[in-house]
Each structure stands twice: as C-alpha cells, then as structure tokens.
Write a protein that binds this DNA or RNA. Structure first.
Lengths: 233, 233
DNA sequence: CAGTGGTCTAGACCACAAG
DNA sequence: TTGTGGTCTAGACCACTGG
C-alpha cells in the first residue's frame, strides 16, 4: 500500500509465519485466500501462491482447493536428513578415511533379505561386508546385498579401491529408497569387527534403494559406539 | 515439437529425470539452460524453472546463476523425517496410549543441559520425566527440561492429563529445532523404567526447540528395545 | 455449481558470479 | 561485462471438491 514496500515471496512468507507464530492466525483456522492476500500485500497472486506453497510443503499450512488454506492443526515436524557417502562424512570431519572388504561372495540370500530384495528363490546375489575406518579406527560396517542383475558392471568393479557404497552412488541411479533407524546390542561379531565391547548399544541404519525395475541393493550399517546422526529444522 | 504434447512442469521434470537416470545427462555435466529447454519442450521458461527448481531442492541438480545447471555429482540423499506427537504415533499403530509423569520439579540444570538451553547459571528450569506406554507397556521415556520463562502457562498446565510433549506442540510455537539420533546401552535406570534388561541397546532421540528469543525445551527420548524409526524417499 | 488453489504464459527486470 | 538463474506481474484457464 504505502511506498517503499518490498514484496517478494519471502517477505510474504515471513509475514505469514509471523502471524502464525503470534497466534494471530490460530491452528486450524482458515486464512484469507490467495487473491485477498495478494491485494493486502500489494503483489501478484502467484507471489502469494509461491509463499504459501512453500509453507504447505514444510507442513505449517494445510491447503485444499475450494476449501481454502488453514494453519495446520498438528504442525508435522519434518526434518530432512542428508544421507552422505561414508567417505565424505568422515573426511568432512577432518579424519582420514579407509575401508576394507571383509568378505565378498555370491550367495542365495536368507528369507528376510530375499523379501526385501524381491528376488525369486534360488537367485544368487552379491554379498559384501565392508568395514569403514576413520583415522584407522572402526567407524561403521556395512552388510550389503546387491542384485547383480540390476547393477551392470558391479562384477568387474574393483570394490577394494572404491567402496560399494561410493561405487553405487556414482554409477547406479535410483528412484526410491527406504530407511530404518534403530539400535541393537553388540554381539560377539559386532564387538570384534568394531573393536568394541559385547553388550554395547549400537546405532543401526538399514537402507534399500530401487529403480523402476529392481531393488538394487539393501544394506545394514552398524556404527561404532558413540555415533550420532544430527539434523536441524 | 509434435502435436498432442502435454506440457506441465511435472512433465518437464519427468523428462529431465529420465535423461538423468538414463545417463543421457551425466553427473557433473551441464544441461541446457532454461531458455533452451523451454523452446525444446514448447513451454514457458517459468515452467522449466519450476521443474528444475524442484529437482534442485531434492538434490539432483546443482544450479548456479551464470554458471548454469548441472547434474549433481554427489546426489545427496535427503529423507524427510516426520517427528510426531508420541500419542499419535502409538495410536496410529492401533495401540492404546497412556503416559505417567515420573517426576516433576524445578531445579538448576547440569552444565550440559544449561549449555543447550542457553540459560544463565543459577536459573532454575522445569525438569520432567515422563513415561509413555503403548498397550500398557513402556514405549519411550522422556527426560525433559523446559525454560519456564519461554513458556507461559506451563506452570499451571495439568501435565498429567496431557503430556508435556503434546501440550508444548499445541501451545508453544517454535521456529527451529535440533535433532540427534544415537544409541545407548541400558543401565539400571533405563532397564527399570523401560522394563528391559540392563545392557540392551536403546534408540535415543535428543531434541531441542527454540523460538527467536529462547531455547524452549530440550528432551532426551529413550525408546524401549525394538523401536524402529522409518522413512522413505 | 461455484470458489479455491494449481498452473501456464509472455514478458520484464534483477542479482549474482564466471571469465 | 554478460550470461544464467531468480523472481515478479497480469491475466487466463483448469482441476478439484465442498456445499
């Protein structure tokens, strides 16, 4: 309205956020529609749309055609987790990275893995166990199964030079992934590989990735004690 | 080019994705600029922009003014984690929810907590320990500190009726949060509260939330054995 | 059926940063 | 300096869905 105003979608977004946080617009309440806000803010409707769409994507607004836009009742808190290549994660901390292939073989997977990989009974997969070290100390080990049919070239790749983790990221595009985070108790095997005590609590990530045709790989990462995964909103 | 084409930003996005996945455009390689793609796809530049911006946000493209747009070299895998109210999480599984306040007191926090809460030495905070149960069995317990200055009304709230978790979400808006996921080994205290064995690996979430003025609360959630946090891309 | 958000367009100007 | 993405606009039509 007045002179000197600055109308970007971020300005609109900031003002909307202010009204939500100040309870001027309360959870569950409808807010004015895009056209009205555009008039109020003195900008195009598209600009308001951009601002509100971003807020809806982050879970603070609930938008529906015809119904309108309301402040989310249960502001779903979404945190985006970056899942890095292990080497980058370690080197990013200023530590040296090294990895060792503990075992590599072709084998028919157990039922649980087979279900996750969606392969037929009897089909053999590549089974890899790799230990990743930071400054020479065990950091995490990965127990991985790879569907060699879905991954051309894996048979001839030198997985001692470049870890399967990194090789796959660099060479095999994927469309979807599935992550589970949990904790486990170190048994004899984990204690030996990670050089920790039996009975210690360990952080575990299980991850599968797939493309349109296949489940490409599934891996279980077991981290040495003390590992912390961090994110912010 | 030909007739009968359908140009939405999602169509453009899908085609760009196809070219990335098929390695027609390789990681690190520059792709044509927006104007060129707009001509190729027979749509407005804004439409191309929308498609490419979305892909950049999800980490598959790397865009810079003047430099141009390239396929991300290290496709950052981003997963969005929803951080739910514990009651909803439990009820969502079809289990019954109940919670118990194990202790509630005002106290000066230990140094670690004080650092996270950014309060002055000697300032007292509310300290709450709450156990959440699913179908009557321990599910998770929260050890929480609340900055009462930042949370008007908390003193008089009935935290037996509604857990602090839920009360805070419903009543106190926040602008930022900080999450850490890790594992710990159950000691005597955890074993007793969660009715598990000493030495079991437990999944832990530490979370702080803040607004412009204060750190509002920090909580450490320790889950009963077997808890799994899940997400997809 | 009609109101709301979703999207597209053509054109314009701007901000940034590579060379 | 100049090419590229970033954004804004005014207007239009469409898709969905509540009433």
């Amino acid at each position: 309205m007045s002179a000197g105003e600055f109308n970007s979608w971020q300005t609109v977004q900031a003002e909307v956020l202010r009204r939500i946080n100040s309870r001027e617009w309360r959870p569950g309440e409808f807010i004015p529609n895009e056209a009205e806000l555009a008039v109020e803010f003195g900008c195009a409707r598209a600009t308001v749309n951009r601002a509100l769409r971003a807020l809806a994507e982050s879970g603070l607004l609930d938008r529906r055609r015809k119904a309108g836009t309301r402040v989310a009742l249960n502001p779903v808190r979404k945190a985006t987790l970056a899942i890095p290549v292990i080497r980058y994660e370690i080197e990013g901390k200023g530590q040296s990275y090294r990895h060792t292939v503990l075992s590599k073989q072709r084998a028919a997977p157990p039922a649980g893995i087979r279900a996750r990989m969606r392969t037929e009974p009897g089909v053999k997969l590549m089974h890899l166990v790799t230990l990743h070290l930071a400054d020479g100390k065990p950091y995490v080990f990965g127990d991985r199964w790879i569907n060699t049919e879905a991954v051309p070239g894996i048979e001839t790749a030198d997985l001692n030079a470049q870890s399967a983790n990194e090789w796959l990221v660099a060479n095999i595009p994927f469309e979807g992934g599935d992550f589970t985070f949990s904790a486990m108790t170190a048994g004899p095997r984990e204690a030996e590989i990670l050089a920790c005590k039996e009975g210690e609590g360990l952080f575990v990530i299980e991850r599968s990735t797939w493309n349109a045709a296949h489940v490409i790989t599934t891996v279980r990462l077991t981290f040495a004690p003390g590992y912390r995964m961090h994110t912010e909103i």
